[in-house]
């Protein structure tokens, strides 16, 4: 197919000089980043450095003030027709978001729905799948994160680790081309971190494209292809994970790693 070759020429995420302010506070001061398909990139950095904000710009939960963000060759929030960019309507923006999965620090499972209904929600409502097919798909995803036996449990009946795995299953049920994780293990008790990281490792092995904001340096070193260190709204250092974490070149990176490791 000719289509295939065209698609394969652009990266999954391409960020050029991304700038974002909240009021007068400049949070992102020109971020450049490329994530190729099948790649796992970990975003590390001190709290307040703009990691979450950048992640939220990728799936258009925040709009950027300047720069160019594109996902899978399409400009985020815009549609390219000819040489012009047209701002998307809300429904079109929603359709774009449906192709990108997001996993949150505080899980954000729908509290009034069982694990199964949480995972079925996207396929039924957004992908307009028949309920019976959505249920099969959802059960398969729950199986994958090892929680098929908890299908009928409400989020409040699950441990933090289990809730986060359901949240991952929920994102996977949308069959996304890109998964974003915002500190997926930061809200977990230490003994529950492992099960979530293991689930994410399995996804990385399958070739899922992932951008992961994390403080788990061993995960970043072992699983990520590349690590990006952000501080104060700029990328301070980036490169292959072993280099950035094992042999950081920048003094600020060294100081940060010294504090977390």
């Amino acid at each position: 197919m000719t289509n295939q070759t065209v698609i394969a020429t652009h990266p999954m995420v391409e960020a050029r000089n991304i700038q974002k302010s909240f009021g007068t506070v400049e949070v992102l001061k020109g971020i450049d980043m490329v994530v190729d398909r099948g790649e796992v990139v970990c975003l590390i950095g001190p709290s307040g450095s703009g990691k979450s904000t950048f992640l939220r710009c990728i799936n258009h939960l925040e709009t950027i003030n300047a720069g160019m963000m594109s996902v899978d060759g399409e400009p985020v929030g815009y549609e390219k027709r000819g040489n012009l960019l047209y701002e998307l309507r809300e429904s079109q923006a929603a359709a774009r978001r449906a192709q990108i999965g997001m996993v949150f620090q505080h899980f954000n499972l729908f509290e009034h729905k069982t694990a199964l209904k949480n995972v079925m929600e996207g396929p039924v409502v957004v992908r307009r799948m028949r309920r019976s097919r959505a249920k099969e798909l959802a059960m398969a995803q729950l199986e994958k994160v090892g929680l098929a036996h908890k299908a009928d449990a409400y989020p409040s009946e699950l441990s933090g680790g289990q809730q986060q795995r359901v949240a991952i299953a929920r994102a996977l049920a949308m069959e996304p081309k890109l998964l974003l994780f915002d500190e997926p293990t930061s809200a977990l008790d230490p003994e529950l971190v492992g099960e979530v990281l293991e689930t994410m490792r399995a996804l990385a092995r399958e070739g899922m494209t992932m951008v992961v904001v994390t403080h788990e340096m061993s995960f970043a070193r072992d699983v990520a292809d590349r690590v990006v260190f952000m501080d104060g709204g700029v990328v301070v250092e980036s490169g292959p994970s072993r280099d950035v974490i094992g042999n950081p070149q920048n003094a600020r990176t060294r100081e940060f790693l010294g504090n977390v490791l």
Partner: peptide, 17 residues
């Protein structure tokens, strides 16, 4: 919680959904 609406939005739901 604010995260509920955000999770739905991130999943691709429209505002009214």
């Amino acid at each position: 919680g604010h995260g509920q609406g955000e999770a739905a939005k991130a999943m691709g739901m429209k505002p009214m959904q």
